[in-house]
C-alpha cells in the first residue's frame, strides 16, 4: 500500500492544507475528507500524517487552532488561516504554478 501512494513533494501537503481551510475553519477529519473527495484515489495521504503538518503550521503561525463543537456535538479542534498564512498561501500557490509549468515544459520538450 505504501508503494502505491503518490509521494507528495516537500511542502505540497502544507499548501493543500492551507488551501483547504482558506474558505472556512475546519477540523482535521474534515480536512482529510475534503482532500480525499477532491483528489479521489490519486492522492493516498495517510490520514495521520496530516497532524504533524498541522502542528508544524500552527507553530509557524500560518494557521491557528481553536476548540469548537462539531456537527455531532463533540469538542473538536478547528484550524483557520492567519493573515500570515493567507499571504503564504498566495505566494506558494504562485510558486507551485510556476514550478509545475517549468517542470512540464522541460518534460515535454524534445
Amino acid at each position: 500500500m505504501d508503494d502505491e501512494r503518490l509521494d507528495l513533494p516537500q511542502g505540497a501537503l502544507d499548501l493543500l492544507i492551507l488551501k483547504t481551510i482558506a474558505l472556512e475553519p475546519q477540523h482535521g477529519w474534515a480536512i482529510s475528507e475534503r482532500l480525499h473527495q477532491i483528489s479521489g484515489a490519486t492522492l493516498q495521504i495517510r490520514q495521520g500524517s496530516l497532524y504533524p503538518a498541522l502542528h508544524r503550521l500552527e507553530r509557524r503561525g500560518w494557521i491557528k487552532a481553536r476548540w469548537g463543537t462539531s456537527d455531532n456535538n463533540r469538542r473538536a479542534k478547528y484550524y483557520e488561516l492567519t493573515q500570515q498564512g493567507r499571504a503564504q498561501l498566495g505566494d506558494r500557490t504562485d510558486a507551485w504554478r510556476r514550478l509545475t509549468t517549468v517542470v512540464g515544459l522541460v518534460l515535454d520538450s524534445r
Binding site: G28, Q47, Y51, K77
Partner: peptide, 11 residues
C-alpha cells in the same frame, strides 16, 4: 493532542 486524534479516529 490525544483528544484531537481520537476525534478523528471516531469520525
Amino acid at each position: 493532542m490525544a483528544e484531537e486524534l481520537q476525534f478523528h479516529i471516531d469520525r
